[in-house]
Design a protein around this nucleic acid. Sequence first.
DNA 1: ACGCCGTTTCCTGTTT
DNA 2: AAAACAGGAAACGGCG
Length: 529
Amino acid sequence: MCVCSGADNRICTLLTGDSVTIDLLENRHQLAAHVYFFIFQDSPALACPAPLVALAPPGATDWPALASPPSNTLPAGNTGLAFVGPSAFSVVPPAPTAIPQVAPRPTTTPVLPLYPGLMCLPALLDKLSGSQGILRSHMSSTPFKPIPNNEKVDLARFRVKDPVEWLVDDVVSWMLDVAKRHGIPFEEMNMHRFANLTGQQMIGMTEQNFIERDPIWGPLIYNEFRKNLAEDTSVIDEIMKKYNADEEAVAVAGTGPSTSFEIPKTRITAPNPSTMVPQFHALTQTLNQTLNQTLNQSIQLNTNLAQNLQQTLNQSLATSLAAGLSTGLSPINLGLVHNSLSPSSPLLGAQIQQKISPLPSEITSFNASTATAVCSDFEGLTYHVIIHGNITPLHAAGSEDCSSVIDSKLKKNKDGKPRKRSQHTKGNKLWEFIRDALKDPLTCPSVVRWEDPIEGVFRIVESEKLARLWGERKNNTKMTYEKLSRAMRTYYEKQILVPVPKTGLYPKKLVYKFGPGAHGWDAIKEELL
DNA sequence: ACGCCGTTTCCTGTTT
DNA sequence: AAAACAGGAAACGGCG
């Protein structure tokens, strides 16, 4: 999809993915005079000739007069823009001289008729890029070759990433979201002035920088971005990374292995303000206070754990903060934390069990059913457990290390090869496990992640880790991704999974899509909408 | 004891 | 070449 703006109508921001299609449909009436939308209809891999539906603004004089409509035009009266393929383009910053300022912006937003013509993509591309040098295609000159760059591009992706990790696609997606939420017609934003920025670059920008790029909406965009940052946990992440680095250093130089339950109270120090973006000072101080407070509570809890194991923390703070610490969640994901980290979280037991193992020897088990724990592992460096609720030493089923017991009970099949123990666990089906992993910040997005939460498309990020977790769940240390995927494939027949559309929108491997037989995964969709 | 379900295991062949 | 995908066949263990 291509969104063009600017007074010369040739500054184009190229987007990929289909979620924005909905935005377009919803906001079609808002399209003002100088916006062109190029929408590729039903184009599996953007092979050309891909039917191209273009909206022609009334009175537009420089609309590329491209060809007569091919024979496969849309039926008369068809206004559907429903099938949008991926973009074949990357964003190329326009030359500054090519961006005249738009003086009075249109305030009315007429409903635009569909341009009657359907045009071939390369022709249009040549038309646009040839004259201005704005567009660059990833496509080869071979017109029928599929897009080489079919990396995941998801217009909802910015929601699950830190702004600091936003790529140019994410920035544009976010801006579209801002425009939609504020009812701003896209073309009224100088989106192209932001389309070459990453989140990291935007973090370093002042409000004035925003205003320079968009005198009208710059302050709003700036405030929206800051709001995003304020709700984001990246700063805490930085603090915690620093903390972990310090802790590791101490552990190496110190008296023994460090565990998450050896948290020195003095370890958290304020970051050097000179190394930080000025706007973050106040935020960092606040977060530091919160962090210290929470950690101190955890330390206190830890101190009493072996004797009493009854402690109450501020659930909201501990859960949200720690969940954010674990994954650097965006605000939206933080909003999901309460649901996803419920004590009954299917992953939690295994995760807690895994994380709890370095506890002092007298604490050998953990009642996951009565506790809410959050673990953050920072890519395996170290981790911290912040616990809320009642924790009692117990002998919960599954809490012991069963591996040796399992091994001794393994039966052998005809070939004399050992077979694993139970495969059948009521209410714990594989697809449910994966669904819940997608809700759990401990595993999403590090192990599994959404490609398109609206469509139910998800991707396995770390296949063997997912298999290991599934194996832990089933007390089967021999689980592999190969076996797990075989079980996944049995779901196609039951429509629990359905084939992922070969649109080129998604990576070719490790991507699955929930089907009508699966349920409970679309709660995230409701959160996002 | 039996049949069904939801895997798990093993395998061969294909696709990416 | 390696990883992932596809799917057949048989085994397994829990459950009704």
